[in-house]
């Protein structure tokens, strides 16, 4: 899609979508709605480290797409923001919050992976300060506009001004000191083709991105389940006191509860879907199977199960149903 078309589309969306088209369509859901203001709340989880919790929900107009966890780290050279949120508005709100907390504006942004609730907030920052793994950059080049389309459709006014800002593809795995803060970048994949985790040495905190979900069901639109499980093994082996998942509450159990829960869900999911194919269920029915009681505390479980059916089921059928 050309940039000109993208701009025109957004102008149309901003001006017309709800107003001019809605009268032809039924339902209050399509009436004109204006976004509220993002009001991110920070929770201090270590010395110079704050967590901004996302809503443990699907992306919706009600939450403005602010569903991903973000972390703010103080440094002498400005704040480090690990995931800038879903939109330009959310990115700006996180920038302002970081300045209030640390006394300095955001100087560096890491995008953990390409998903729009984590990546599109980069629109609020100068492209030169936004960094990601090469695979994340490549994924956003390929799919960023389509992902933005989806977000504009769901979030409308919340997305205003959010143009795709591509991160610099210059993140390499290894230790790094930024503004006196010693961190380690960990390059993994499995949730997507590029999943960045970050260890903050001063606080012993592992920012796991969406490789780890906690009490919120994992999302799988770009997942490679075998690679994801291998990435979880790597994360488990990294010493840390506190783990911040991409979605859900932080895990201070010291027993890798969130990692184990993510692994458990992914294993159950794959086994269950294969079993559904072998038992002759169609996609819709596979999305209706009972979810075990051990996942009853998991938010958005049915929703993510049904999304995962869409992601995996046709390919499983193509290999498991007998050829006639």
């Amino acid at each position: 899609m050309s940039a000109a078309w993208a701009c025109r589309r957004r102008a149309v969306l901003r001006g017309l979508v709800a107003g001019a088209l809605a009268p032809a369509l039924p339902g209050a859901a399509l009436a004109e709605r204006f976004a509220g203001a993002y009001d991110p709340q920070a929770e201090a989880i270590g010395d110079g480290l704050w967590l901004v919790r996302g809503a443990d929900e699907p992306i919706s107009f009600a939450n403005g797409g602010a569903i991903a966890n973000c972390a703010i780290l103080a440094s002498d050279d400005g704040a480090i923001l690990f995931d800038p949120g879903a939109s330009r508005g959310e990115g700006h709100a996180l920038d302002a919050l970081a300045k209030r907390l640390t006394g300095k504006a955001v100087a560096r942004v890491y995008i953990s992976h390409l998903h729009p609730d984590h990546a599109l907030g980069a629109a609020a920052f100068a492209p030169a300060m936004v960094h990601a793994l090469p695979a994340t950059r490549a994924g956003l080049e390929r799919e960023g506009e389509a992902l933005a389309d989806g977000m504009y459709r769901l979030l409308a006014d919340w997305m205003k001004g959010t143009d795709l800002v591509l991160p610099r593809p210059d993140v390499r795995a290894g230790p790094l000191v930024f503004g006196g803060r010693s961190i380690e970048l960990v390059a993994l994949d499995g949730h997507t083709s590029g999943d960045l985790a970050l260890i903050d040495h001063a606080t012993g905190t592992l920012l796991a991105g969406d490789l780890v979900f906690h009490d919120r069901a994992p999302a799988t639109p770009h997942a490679d389940l075998a690679a994801w499980r291998a990435a979880l093994d790597r994360l488990e082996a990294l010493p840390h006191r506190l783990l911040v998942p991409g979605h859900g509450p932080p895990d201070a159990s010291g027993r890798h509860h969130a990692i184990a829960q993510t692994r458990d869900w992914l294993g159950w999911l794959e086994e269950t879907l294969r079993d559904c194919v072998k038992r002759g269920l169609d996609m819709g029915e596979a999305g209706e199977v009972p979810i075990p009681a051990r996942f009853s505390g998991m938010k958005a479980a049915r929703y993510e199960l049904q999304r995962s059916v869409s992601h995996f089921y046709p390919a499983m059928e193509a290999s498991l149903l007998p050829r006639l």
């Binding site: 639109p221 169609d282 819709g284 029915e285 999305g287 929703y303 049904q306 999304r307 059916v309 869409s310």
Partner: peptide
């Protein structure tokens, strides 16, 4: 007419 909670893929939408 049983439908998923959402149309994750508008090209392949299951209907029962």
């Amino acid at each position: 007419v049983r439908l998923p909670l959402l149309a994750e893929n508008q090209h392949v939408f299951p209907v029962t």
